[in-house]
Simulated assay, not measured.
Amino acid sequence: MFASSWLFVPGDRPDRFGKACSSGAGAVILDLEDAVAPASKAEARAAVRKFLDLPRDASRPAIAVRMNPVSTLAGLHDLAMLVELGDRLDYLIVPKAEEAAELALIGKMLAPTIDHPSIIALIESGRGVAMASQLAVASPQMAALMFGAADYAADLGKSVARYRPDFARTTIVNAAAAGGIAALDSPWFDTKDASGLAEECAASMALGFHAKAAIHPSQIDEINRAFSVSDADRDLARRYIAASVEGVALVDGKMVDVAMLNWARRIA
């Protein structure tokens, strides 16, 4: 099951790693890229390595690492370290994703040590959006496409607070669906605007995203609430399945067709 909430934590703040893991987030993203100053990259890499070398607690959420772009020396160092970690890493987030060949190469490097889909391609440019369908199927290791709203806005010359990237979001969701992988939405950047976060989560869910990233623990409860399957929906799904044992059925006066049954099987 793909986690609903993904909490970013700066990779050079190991004092926050444990707190993030106990925040209720379904996954924690240890960030080696934008949250870390160039002079602190090596320090952050060492801190992440040390944390992931610790014995894994069964209650710990999934751990992802956002590396630096592989076109940079820091990114190459990150990738070498993460490949060595093997299955101690759950997900690797590749930023500035634009080239399927790049993801395919990373997938080949991870495959000998990580036996599950582990790559999340972070799409945050106009070219990345244009290439989304190719990125989604670049490697058997692809787990999700993620939208990076801030960098995408900058690429378009817009303010992230005053634009509507609906085309980018729907393109990413559709590409992920076509590739049979998950779609992860960008964080809501105003940590003091709880109502805005709730509206953003509802809109994101309606577009077809499976999960949403966060930049502060205070955002986790709302994201979990918005992206969790409700008891009512789960109950309805079970009724659809039970009624359809012998084919097409009626539930509450409505016909349950194949599409509705497929929905039910995914969430029951």
Score class of each variant (00 low, 15 high):
N68I: 01
P69W: 01
V70S: 09
S71D: 14
S71A: 14
L73P: 03
G75P: 10
L76C: 08
H77I: 11
H77E: 15
D78A: 10
L79D: 09
L79I: 09
A80H: 11
M81I: 05
V83L: 09
V83I: 14
V83C: 14
E84W: 02
E84G: 13
G86C: 12
G86Q: 11
G86V: 07
D87M: 09
D87W: 01
D87I: 03
R88W: 08
R88C: 13
L89P: 09
D90L: 13
Y91I: 07
Y91F: 15
Y91Q: 13
L92G: 10
I93V: 15
I93D: 11
V94T: 06
V94P: 07
V94R: 01
V94F: 04
P95W: 05
P95E: 12
K96I: 05
K96N: 13
K96R: 13
A97W: 02
A97N: 10
E98W: 01
E98F: 00
A101G: 13
A101F: 04
E102S: 11
L103F: 03
L103N: 07
A104Q: 08
I106G: 05
G107H: 01
G107D: 05
K108M: 12
M109F: 02
M109R: 10
M109P: 00
M109W: 04
L110S: 06
L110M: 15
P112C: 05
P112T: 02
P112L: 06
